[in-house]
Simulated scan of single mutants.
Amino acid sequence: MADYKTLIDAEIWAFIEKTDSHYPPETATFGVEDQRRIYDEMCAAFRVAYPIGVSAIDRDYGGVPCRHYTSGTADVAVMYYHGGGFVVGGLESHDDVCAEICAASGFDVISVDYRMAPEHKHPAMFEDAMAATRAVADELGKPLVLCGDSAGGNLAAAVSHMARGTGLDIRGQVLVYPGLGGDYNKGSYVEYADAPMLTRDDIVIYKNVRLAGEEPVGDPRYAPLHDSDFAGLPPTVINTAQCDPLSDDGVDYQRALKAAGVPVHHVDEPGLVHGHMRARHMSARSSASFERIKEAVTALGKGKWPYA
């Protein structure tokens, strides 16, 4: 097992302790209403004000509740799919993250409040993500960048896979510590099984809540890594955290895209943990990582590929 005391610095330990004080490590075992209440309270404890010049309105796209952020006239739209294991989170949990991406890129950002488990099983969350994405493209007429963290990274990639050949103008995707359907019995799932912020046991709990029955086989809407064809996907930037059971999903996805000739860039952030974007205002490492994420969104939206 990993030596977290050596890998993780004092600022991230302070972040972990603050998170645990609001969101105890055992929260994934609680009832769904308690999980959501505790998660929302934790997110509120970290929330910061919008950057100057950013405004937002709540409205539906494709029948899906969304929040549309703008900082002026933009020629690109960013679709943002929030994390939370397909069980918790929503428009409030990632509100400030979306506002800061909007301010940094100058693009519109549309946060998608997709249906969640256990009330709605797979593929309901994917269906909402796709419906909102299509509606934004049709109504705004702008090229898109897809972005999401954790479960939202899964949705961003799933939309990218299923959008091939549909005419959607997707300039790129930015996946932040995504869960993409890797093998739970090897690699980072074993080495970082007991990581702070997210354990392998948590991942298994969320997977079982998300499913209506048996785990789908070969369904990229569920697990993009399970696709048989990775050709034709948009340029992709993957940002993973070293101390995270999910980190090898990013590694495996990079390999699959590279083998298929898709431009792909992967950064595994040393000493960072799952969910660390929330630490961006209290950790130098997380702040630098978030800068890379915002720069990736901006570059892809402009049709640039600044990676060797």
Rank of each mutant, 00 (worst) to 15 (best):
G31Q: 13
L91W: 03
I38E: 14
P235F: 12
V97N: 00
F290C: 10
H281D: 04
A99P: 03
A231E: 09
T73M: 14
K186F: 07
V88I: 13
Y81P: 01
V48T: 15
V78C: 06
M277H: 14
K5H: 13
V87P: 10
Q254V: 08
D9I: 05
A135P: 01
F86I: 00
G218T: 11
Q242L: 08
I16R: 07
I12N: 03
L168M: 15
V176D: 04
E127S: 09
L198C: 06
M282R: 11
M42K: 15
D95V: 01
T236V: 05
E291Q: 15
R47T: 08
H68E: 05
D183C: 08
V32T: 14
I16G: 02
G90P: 02
S247T: 15
V190S: 04
P235L: 11
E41P: 08
R134H: 09
S289Q: 11
P270C: 11
K186T: 14
V251D: 05
L140G: 01
S55R: 08
G301V: 05
G53Q: 00
I110Q: 01
P306F: 15
G63L: 04
G303P: 06
R36H: 11
G84R: 03
A299I: 01
G250H: 03
F86C: 00
V88E: 05
A132I: 00
L211R: 06
L225P: 01
V190E: 05
S283M: 05
H274N: 01
A223N: 05
D108R: 04
E92S: 08
T29K: 15
F30A: 14
G84V: 02
H281S: 10
D219G: 00
A151H: 06
G250N: 02
Q242F: 06
G187I: 11
E214K: 08
S286C: 11
M130K: 02
A288R: 12
A193C: 06
D75Y: 08
R67P: 04
R280D: 02
N208C: 14
A231L: 04
H82Y: 02
T298E: 13
V217Q: 14
Y4M: 08
Y114I: 00
G165L: 10
V76S: 06
E92Q: 10
D252S: 11
G271T: 05
S188K: 03
R221L: 09
R255T: 15
V176N: 05
S111N: 03
M197P: 00
T240G: 07
S289P: 06
W13Y: 10
I38S: 15
H82D: 01
V176W: 10
Y184Q: 14
H274P: 00
S283N: 11
V159W: 02
P143W: 13
A117M: 07
G182Y: 07
C243V: 12
Y222M: 13
D268C: 12
